[in-house]
Amino acid sequence: MAEFRLLRSPAPAPSRDDECLDAFQRELDYIYRSLRRLGTPASEVDDLAQEVFLALRHSWDQYDGSRPIRPYLFGIAFRISAANQRKRRREVAFAVIETDDRGPNPDEALQTKQARAHVLEALEHIPLKRRAVLVMHDLDDVPVREVAAALSIPVFTVYSRLRKARGELESALRRTRKDGGNA
């Protein structure tokens, strides 16, 4: 009897859904922040994060587990943001109340939070396609080739979008600094 007690059935392999949920849980902070960087209003981030999860679950078999997951997730978040932006253009916004960190809060003493709000505000001035490239490359430090793969665009397009987006970011930051100085 004793030897039978030593035998254990192997632990069941995690299911596809478990793996996907696990990845979603690990990268939840990143997904939320990426959606905000892509211009999703704070009031819609919850719903879009769920859409990212559902899309991730749908395409889980296509994800190559040997590669970093963040560029893959960013690609999904970008497409969902773009679809949402198209939808929003056709709809009248319904009672959207921003409760997030748009614009420096006079009561907020933390410099970092102000800087973050400043960057988000400046990013708003860059069209989504170029903003996605800039965020991936200059904030997430994703190499150009991976940016191209994640967004399904040629490498040259990444370079040209990045060049233009950097210029737009600089002018937006200059403008917001100037507005802040005048205020």
């Binding site: 849980q25 769920q50 999860f53 899309a55 679950r57």
Partner: peptide, 19 residues
Amino acid sequence: ALARAHAAAATGSAAIPVP
């Protein structure tokens, strides 16, 4: 967010394609 994701996974039919 995690509760919603678990609920969606439990229903089994809510997966959507990437737009």
